[in-house]
Every structure is written in structure tokens, then in C-alpha cells.
Amino acid sequence: MGSPPSLSRMVGYACAALGAAFFSTKAIFIKLAFEDQLDAALFLAYRMIFATPIFAAVGVWAYAVRRAKGLPPVASRDVAWAAAMGFLGYYVASAFDFAGLEFISAQLERLVLFTYPIFVMLIGAAFYGQPFTAFSVAAALVTYIGLTIVFTADLPAGGRATAVGTLLVLGAAISFAWYQILAKRFIVSLGSALFTSIALTSAGVFCVLHQAVFGTGSFAASPRFLWLALGCAIVATVLPTFLLSAGLARVSAQAVSMMGTVSPVVTIALAIAILGEPFTVADAVGSALVLAGVGLFTFGDSRAAKPSVRKEEAAADLPAGGAPP
């Protein structure tokens, strides 16, 4: 006998919230690892070395299920594009994001990265003729007023480093926004499990090559650094990916996106408790405005979404806005 619909929805909300919370621990793992070795490329490589085999195994399983159901063969073109999306959305964005964390606090990083839905809106309007709405314009203004407050509060202490780190993380947000826009058609054709597997496996390969070619070329690391990379791979990468998928199976994409607003809150709390980062009144006001802006955008977007689009996304098992790298 199946679970009552209300219970299923509650489980979906819980999975979505836990997934967002686990994703938010990424910056904490990175900052702790940087205490041993300040090497973003090396940490990113080890994160993907530990996570990629799991995603590859999921891809093999998803492909076997696809064949068992008698679905059409996977087109090599779709596989190539999924790999390219992994390069853009999880390698390029992660490289920018991890490098940014060498310069700025975990709190500021999460707030800047959390603005990617606004960039999705801006890119959609600039290149695809998607109209602005009152909600989206208001959301963008509120979000960037909040970011400006936090940035201005952190600038005197960090100086040039704060500016460089913020620009790097903005690069990550923009890269991930492009991924969100371009990836949809390939998620529809491949299914979310197979697409995610191909994209993340591709990203894993590029992350390791990045360290070998553009990094130091060395993979030497302390045991603590490796344990933190493993924790980041499992707790902040693999587990939240599956939790968000479980949430999407039970509640709408818009609901999952709204649950994602817990992510910066969790990062801020952990950064204060574990890393000892300061949290001023300006940080509190700015953070509240960023959360309000992204929440306003998500609410307005969910109201504007057409029922047919929602059904299409549900049928394709689309990741609701995905998860930042």
C-alpha cells in the first residue's frame, strides 16, 4: 500500500531541504582543507576523484534501465553535449568557485553563488527573448543590494582579495547559469540520471586534468586534506544530488527551488560555528536581502510557469534548477 500523498510530500520537502543543506557544507570542507594546503585545483581534483566512480556507476545503471525499458538508443551527439555541459556547469564553474574561496569567506561565497537564478533570468532575456517580469526585476534589485552590502562590509578587511574572490565566484554563478539554460534539452532526451552521470564524469576528468596540466602537477596531500576531500565528495556532492532527485520525485521543481534557500543560511551558520568567521549587522542585513531576492524570484517564476512546462519537466525528471557546483 502506497504512502498517503501528504506524507509523500513531507518526505519530498525533507529530502529537498537536506539536499540543499548538504550542498551548503562544500565551502566548509574547502576552507578547512585550505588550512593544510591552499590549493583549490588539488582539492577539486580529489573531490571528483572520489565522487566520479559513484556517478559513473549510476550512469551504467541508468543506461541498463533504459535498455530494459526498450527506449531509443542514446545518440552519440547527446552524449557529447552532456559531456560538454559537464565541462561548463561543473568543471568551469567549480574551478572558478574553488579558486574564489582562496580569497573570500565561505559566507560571501555562498551568497554570491546563490545568485545564479538571477543570471539565468538575465541571460534568458538577453539571448532568448524571455521577458522580464515585475517579480524578476524586483528580485534582481533586492538581491544585488544585499550583495553590495555584504561586499562593502567585507572589503575593508579583505581589500583586493575580496574583489578578486567575488569576481571568481560570480564567474562560477554565470557559468552555472549558462549550464542551466543549455542543459535542459539534453536532460529531456537522456533522462536526468544518465545525463547527470555523463556530465559529472566528464567534469571529473577535466578537474583531474586541470591539476595535472594547469595546477602544480603534483597530487601530494596530507591525510587530513584527503579526508576532507572525501567528505566533500560524499557529503557535499553525492548525497545531496540523490536527495534532490528524491525530493523531485515527490514535490514540484518550484518547491525544491524554494527549499534551496536554506543553503546560504546553513553555510553562514557553519562558517560562524566551525570556521569562526565574523558575522556583523551588515552581513545579516545583506544576507537577508539576498535570500529575500532569490526567494522572490523563485516565487514569481513559479507563478509564471505554464502548466504544460511543469508537466514536461516532471515527466523528464528535470533537476529543479540543479545544484551549484
Rank of each mutant, 00 (worst) to 15 (best):
G217M: 06
V205L: 14
A212C: 00
P4H: 14
F103A: 05
A315H: 07
A229T: 11
I123E: 01
M259C: 13
A304F: 03
A33Q: 05
L291E: 07
A172E: 12
I198S: 14
A203F: 14
S94P: 05
L275W: 02
P324L: 15
W61S: 09
I104K: 01
A125L: 06
P307C: 01
V65W: 01
A284M: 10
F132M: 15
A125G: 09
G247V: 07
Y144N: 10
K69V: 01
S218I: 02
L244T: 12
T261Y: 14
V120K: 02
L101D: 05
L32H: 03
A203V: 06
M121I: 14
A304R: 10
V266T: 10
A314R: 15
I54D: 02
G12F: 02
S287N: 09
W227P: 01
S3A: 13
A236L: 08
L167K: 12
T267I: 11
L200I: 13
Q211E: 13
T143F: 07
S105W: 00
S263K: 03
D36I: 00
V112W: 06
L182F: 15
V164L: 15
A68L: 00
A193N: 11
P307R: 06
A80T: 14
S263N: 13
P240I: 09
P319T: 08
V120W: 03
T196V: 12
E109Y: 05
D36Q: 04
L155H: 08
A14H: 05
L200A: 12
D78Q: 04
A138T: 09
R66L: 00
A106C: 06
L167P: 05
R185F: 09
E277M: 02
L141N: 02
A68Y: 03
A183V: 12
A177F: 09
V265C: 08
T280D: 12
A305E: 13
D283I: 04
G293D: 11
F119A: 06
G100K: 05
A212P: 01
A75P: 00
S257C: 11
D39M: 07
V169D: 10
L270C: 02
G159N: 06
G158K: 13
R77Y: 00
P223S: 01
P156S: 14
S175W: 07
G231F: 13
A221H: 03
M48E: 11
S136R: 13
G217I: 08
G89L: 07
A62I: 02
A271I: 10
T133C: 05
S202Y: 07
T162F: 07
T143R: 04
A21W: 06
L296Q: 08
T280V: 06
F151C: 15
A314H: 15
V58Y: 08
S257K: 12
A40F: 04
T261H: 14
M121N: 11
E102F: 00
L141M: 13
D97P: 03
S76A: 10
L230R: 05
S189H: 01
E313L: 11
P278M: 03
Q211K: 09
S6N: 11
A177I: 12
G276N: 11
G70P: 02
G70H: 01
A314E: 15
L38K: 10
S263A: 15
P4D: 13
G86T: 01
A126N: 00
M48Y: 09
R160G: 08
W178A: 12
T196D: 07
Y144K: 06
V65Y: 01
